[in-house]
Simulated assay, not measured.
Amino acid sequence: MWSEIGPDRQQDIEVDGYRVVAYEFGDGDETVLCLNGGPGLPCDYLREAHSCLKNHGYRVVAFDQLGTGKSDRPDLPGLWTMERYVGEVDTVRRAMGLDRVHLLGHSWGGWLGIEVALHHPGAIKSLILENTVADMPHLIQELQRLRAALGHETVAMMQRHEAMGSLDHPAYQAAITLLNYRHVCRLDDWPAPVKRSLEDWNMGPYVALQGPNEFLYTGLLKDWDRTADLPAIRVPCLITTGLHDELTPACAMRMKQGLPQAELHVFPNSSHMPFYEEPQAYYPVLLDFLDRQRQRGRG
């Protein structure tokens, strides 16, 4: 259901003295504000996967976070903090005249979405946490389990290159490539919007906040854990994950246990991108949740 058709509207927004570019699809009276993964990725892959919601009466908004896509790209490592990104989301929301939104965060965007919901609860009508976590130390344990499935020799090889700092070695990169095809996107040919985002990745914020790849967390957020704060998020929440997701179903279940109004859906044939890997199952789940919130608001 994804489309490479361009946005209906595009807007430049000033954030911290820099230009951030936002995109809109549709003009419904209910807004889905999308926070993409990365960090450091342009929003193309998430924006184009969810632009189809405009055909169901929703206004869809996404934006290139500072440092990505068409937004300004300052080379200032001090900008890459969770606090600044939370402020950026609220600035974009206000600048676009958005009231309470359905906040949809994928991967890193889900970490950010949790922080936004905690800091700006009045801005959120519902929270959609896609392929994400609330507890980074638990995720790191899960990633070790996924890596272990490659076998003892491969794990030892990876640990040796990580210790030596030789992450560009072909053997190490081959292991990461295999893990990506198992746990990031299981399609043989990755969709064009995904390729476009990955080809324009700004590794500055990614390395600063997360680490050098999807299976090694060394950045500022490696100890981030909001599990104890989840009960404060009192809006309806939809949690989605793939059975083979790098951010595993166990991580999703930990979020569900902490959120007062949460429902969880695991897509059996997906990893980290059910909207591309299993669209025939994904979109009915998302639309059912959104439509129930819309009816609830009108009731």
Rank of each mutant, 00 (worst) to 15 (best):
R73L: 00
A175T: 07
L118I: 03
G6W: 04
M96A: 06
Y172H: 12
C237W: 00
L221A: 08
L104E: 04
P274T: 04
S271Y: 01
T154A: 14
D225R: 04
E246V: 11
Q65N: 13
P212Q: 09
E24R: 12
V194K: 01
A117P: 02
G242Q: 00
R100S: 11
L286A: 02
S166G: 12
S3C: 09
L35V: 07
F63W: 13
A262R: 08
M136I: 12
R226P: 02
E199T: 10
L243P: 00
N180A: 11
Q65F: 02
T68D: 00
H272W: 05
A232Y: 11
H161G: 02
G211C: 05
V61T: 04
E199V: 07
E153K: 13
P268E: 12
G299Y: 11
F275H: 15
V101L: 05
I176F: 08
E115Y: 03
L220W: 08
I233C: 06
Q144W: 10
I5W: 06
V285L: 01
D99W: 02
G299K: 15
D223N: 12
Y58W: 09
R100Q: 14
G87I: 03
P249L: 07
C237A: 13
L178W: 10
W2D: 07
S3V: 05
L143D: 08
Y206R: 14
D75M: 12
R294L: 11
Y45T: 02
S51A: 14
L209W: 06
G97V: 06
W2T: 06
G28C: 06
Q210I: 15
L41G: 01
G40T: 09
W111K: 13
M157W: 09
E24A: 13
E115F: 04
R84W: 08
P274D: 05
L243R: 14
R160G: 04
H161R: 11
P193I: 01
N269E: 15
A22W: 00
M96D: 03
G109Y: 03
L103A: 06
Q65V: 09
V266C: 14
D168S: 14
C52L: 15
R294I: 09
N55S: 13
I239P: 02
Q10V: 15
R254K: 15
A49K: 02
L238N: 01
G165T: 04
L209Q: 14
P137Q: 07
A148I: 07
R47V: 05
A134G: 10
R59M: 01
P268G: 07
G242N: 00
V133N: 09
L220D: 15
E14I: 15
F63A: 01
R9F: 12
G297K: 08
L209E: 09
R100V: 06
L238G: 01
L103P: 01
R59C: 05
Y45C: 03
H138W: 12
Q210W: 15
E30V: 10
G297E: 10
D72Q: 04
P77T: 10
L264N: 02
R147E: 14
Y217R: 13
H138T: 11
W201R: 12
M96Y: 08
L259C: 04
